[in-house]
Amino acid sequence: MTPNAALLLLADGRLPAGGYAHSGGFEPTARLQGLNDAAALEDFLEGRVTTSGFVAAAFAAAACAAAHAGNIGRLGQLDPELDARMPSPAVRAVSRALGRQLLRVITRIHPHPVLATLDPHAHQPTVFGAAAASFDLSPQDAALAVLHETITGPASAAVKVLSLDPYEVHSALARLTGLLDELAVRAAAHALDDPDQLPADASPLLDIAAEHHRSWDVRLFAS
């Protein structure tokens, strides 16, 4: 495999796309279900990455393939399909806010014609896939980066929410690398699916937690 610095750039949590402000549902879940250690975090991450993370990865792969093919119509079909897979309005709003922030960053740092075709309120996986294509990355790269973000966001948040030992948190992330690789391959296999056939794995407790979180007056993270 050829070195690919662009993938690292996109997957880097220091990319100023606003991800640091979100716990990916970990903050409300920790409080509602009394999670208090690294093992509980790992269980949360595995559940999130195999459901909503996998869906996001498959959509990013599909968006990347559509952007490579210059298929603007197909790119536009992905957001309504994502809406249908996100019952929680809080989850939809966060996904679209993160998409807007990512689109703004990529447009500034790496202008590309495909980015201009996107809806400014497109969902984050759609923008991520198109951004990956603009760097000539593959659908599988896009999927892997989205899966990586699915677990690193809540993991960093957990260090703050529960004051967990960062070594323990990163041990959990290290154990999950194999799962991420496997999920990236499976997600990329959906890159050319009809939009209505794309994965729709549900995470009902995350949806419910997102609405709890939005109702709180005091919270550390935006989601």
Binding site: G25, D43, F44, E46, P80, A200, D201, A202, P204
Partner: peptide, 24 residues
């Protein structure tokens, strides 16, 4: 047009169904 779509997978083949993020 899509309005609602979801897949739930539970049971021993999907142990992560029990995750605090999914079915708890």
């Amino acid at each position: 047009r899509p309005l609602f779509q979801q897949q739930l997978t539970v049971g021993p083949a999907t142990p992560k169904w029990r995750s605090s993020a999914v079915g708890g």
